[in-house]
Write a protein that binds this DNA or RNA. Structure first.
Lengths: 232, 232
DNA sequence: CCCTGTGAAATTATTCACAGCA
DNA sequence: TGCTGTGAATAATTTCACAGGG
């Protein structure tokens, strides 16, 4: 890549978000969480070494990551916990409040709807959808479950841009199509199904069984461990 | 790492698992799933192009991945669906049946316990643990929820090597310690907490809020899109 | 010819190691 | 002196592009 030509970021508070590598973005939430914990513990500043340990990464990686977003630590001291927290929040777009639609109120959907971690971190479930007669109309966390048919109206009216799909796999693509048409541009998909969406829509997939299969591989590898020197 | 000293794998059907890159391992379950779907659809063979499309990756990557595990496709034709399915299963260690312990039977834990995707793909939840009086002793999917105190005995007795942590964050490290002591060597952690475990234990973390925060970043980036030439 | 398998090139990510500021 | 920020080195991953077998 061309380097050194975006001189625009001289004293900018944060770098152009387009330039932040995916790998870094994926770690920012972890840093944010660690900072939150440190802040609660009364720490005003933190070194890259300490923050890295709290987030479970090595300190060179942490510093490189933070440098991507133009963050200025204090040499000889470390980072101001509160300032850094604010900066990461800004880059992640967490200042803005996000309304999230949740489609599929089965077991997993119910768990997600009640997941404290969402509300805590600026994501409010604003609408719930399902198709089952026994589910539609019930209340969950103060929200009435609506029929999927209402999705286009509600999502459009509430300007919801992020949605979570927790439906059975067979319904996922149809739901995604409907969400996209209603203006959603980010989807978190729990259904084990590859979704086909336009380029401007981001999809992240979480497949619980896939995670276990990856662990299974490592188990398998370990039990084959004829060579105990392995881990280098 | 030294290479070339475990000559045992001469004509072995699959390459030494130690040599398969992580990025590839993470995709194998997706290929497996796609193959399953194709098999049900009556396909006997499949080209790298078609399988890649079904799995949502590009075909060069797919071929490179499959070549890592020594898989032999048929030039001019493609891969035998059944053979490839078997081969990936073997590499992932799915031939062996895996008993899984689930700790934390809250909303999320209940959803996980009932998740069809686990049982479907060779993972049987073999034990449930919690500490809440109103949960311990209840039945869930034919299994009695046991008190956390019983964890060491049960996990050891049933030779459980894979566990899922779905407890509140504050309990996660204690639970992990206990699991490790009882012989568990792979942990899937849903609690938003960095776990400290010995080197021989693999941990995979799934943080639902992190996924949303990553989506939030992309939303933020999109809405900043002052420059339509973007990708440059 | 079609489609796999794979070297080589390109890109991306991680780690090292140290100059330089507080 | 201690710790950040970052070039440079290394490693991992992806993509290209094509030789060669069926």
């Amino acid at each position: 890549m061309r380097s050194g030509d975006n001189r625009a970021t001289r004293t900018a508070p944060a770098a152009d978000p387009r330039d932040i590598p995916d790998a870094t973005v994926a770690r920012l939430p972890e840093y944010l969480h660690a900072l939150h914990t440190l802040g609660e513990g009364g720490h005003r500043t933190v070194s890259s070494e300490a923050l890295a340990a709290a987030a479970g990464v090595n300190s060179a990686k942490l510093r490189k990551d933070l440098s991507q977003l133009g963050s200025y630590g204090i040499r000889g001291v470390g980072y101001d916990v509160e300032v850094l927290r604010q900066q990461i929040s800004d880059v992640l777009g967490l200042a803005r409040h996000h309304s999230v639609a949740l489609v599929g109120v089965g077991h997993l959907g119910q768990a997600l709807a009640g997941y404290a971690g969402f509300a805590n971190r600026g994501f409010a479930i604003a609408a719930l959808f399902d198709v089952a007669d026994e589910t539609v109309g019930t209340e969950l966390g103060g929200l009435r479950v609506r029929h999927l048919d209402e999705l286009p109206i509600v999502v459009t009216a509430e300007r919801i841009s992020i949605a979570v799909i927790a439906t059975p796999p067979v319904a996922a693509q149809t739901v995604a199509d409907s969400l996209v048409k209603a203006g959603v541009t980010s989807i978190l998909n729990f259904a084990p199904r590859v979704l086909d969406v336009p380029d401007n829509v981001d999809v992240r997939k979480v497949d619980l069984a896939v995670e276990l299969q990856i662990l299974s591989f490592h188990e398998h590898r370990k039990s084959r461990g004829a060579d105990p020197r392995e881990a280098a």
